[in-house]
């Protein structure tokens, strides 16, 4: 899989990395050579029973006991911008309807609807 400048820019956007066009050119060269090496893996033929990835012979869980949380000051103290109560970030999105609201009330779950396929 050859990697060019556009591919680098596409991946950089996914990874939220600012990459200048010049950097992208250089990175494309580096990544292309690395991926070429990695591509050698494709020739590896694996036995049918190629082993399990889990080498854990244990399940580790936690009992449901609540403990101490950090103080708010400790939680916020390393942040670039706060108002003493919240972490502050530049505006996320413009919401229709205006009002202060929690846009995530139902956002978890994302775009997975109908994973079951075509219908």
């Amino acid at each position: 899989m050859p990697i060019d400048r556009d591919e680098v820019l596409r991946i950089a956007a996914l990874a939220r990395l600012r990459v200048s066009p010049e950097e992208a050119e250089a990175l494309a060269g580096d990544l292309d050579r690395i991926v070429a090496h990695i591509d050698s893996l494709r020739e590896v033929e694996l036995p049918d029973d190629s082993g399990s990835l889990t080498y854990f012979d244990q399940d580790v869980h936690r009992e449901d006991r609540a403990g101490e949380s950090l103080s708010r000051d400790d939680a916020l103290k390393n942040a670039a911008e706060t108002d003493g109560e919240f972490f502050l970030v530049p505006q996320v999105v413009d919401k229709p309807g205006g009002k202060t609201r929690d846009d995530r009330a139902t956002r978890s779950g994302g775009d997975d609807a109908g994973r079951g396929g075509d219908r």
Binding site: F86, V89, P90, Q91, G98, D102, D103, S108, G109
Partner: peptide, 30 residues
Amino acid sequence: EDTGKSLHEDAGNVSRVDLNRAGTPLVEVV
């Protein structure tokens, strides 16, 4: 796991983030 909450102001250009809810256990039923 659940996410935290982002509160978006009407005007202004900041969003406020509260992470109390982050990590609350959720079950998703589809």
